[in-house]
Amino acid sequence: MTGDGTMEPVRFNGWPELKETFLANNLEATFILAPLAISLREQGVPIKIVYLGHRDGTTMMVRKDSTVFRIEDLRGRTVAVPNRFSNQRLILFKAFKERGMSIQDVKLVEMPPPDMPAALYSRSVDAVISGEPFMAQTEMDGYGRVLFMTKDVWPEFISCVLAVPEDLIRTRRADVQRLVDGIARSGKWLDRDMAHRMQAADFSGKQYYHQDPKLLRFVLSKPPDRVKYTNLSLVRKDFEEIEALGREAGILNGSAHFKDYADTSFVRDETAVRPFDWEGPP
């Protein structure tokens, strides 16, 4: 898969492989789980988060015929999460805590998101939680039911962040800025008009994700705020909440803070970001 000019998207199917490739200096930038990026910083990896990938866009699914109708009903069940260092795990921790439950009340298993639909279908797990479109796939295929969307449990949920090696900010700042500007401007373009979302579903499904555009159209429209691509600047309080939950959940040790792992200099004023002028074919 090649990108435009010097930008080259490199696709992975699981977080461990992506992390190892980044650590081996084979990626100049990466979308990565927010707690995983913070944890790497805690371990001394010179990584900086420079922007968000999206907001919300994560759904928890159970089988249509499941007897789980509320978060409390998950007690004693097996739940698949993308990674130990994922906000999908932390949202469970938060939701359980708010309901007087503990993360020990469920059996958590780590699973690459692309494997989750089959695991739910075969009843290997009782519930799955991940970024879209794998959750919507279970819904479209007729065996999955939404238990909750992140927007209803943790509004403005952060899943993936854009991270770069710290030295790249010095050596290739213009390239990082170009990437961040592209994400910011295309995000505003996406959220300006539903027709733009449908257009994006078609070309990204065919050109980049190699997924059915019908599935992406579903994710980007049902409902329209299932996933959002604006308000992607780094906000200190959002990350402090992740840090606090991460410490409570035992995946972060609290040795790295916002000023250590975040660089907010690429988009100082979100309102100044202008959407691209692309228009769809007539």
Binding site: M7, N13, N26, F31, D175
Partner: peptide
């Protein structure tokens, strides 16, 4: 890149 610019590889998973 076309002008001898070094590659800029961006890792991603096909999720949202």
């Amino acid at each position: 890149g076309p002008n001898g610019a070094p590659p800029f590889r961006v890792g991603f998973l096909p999720v949202t």
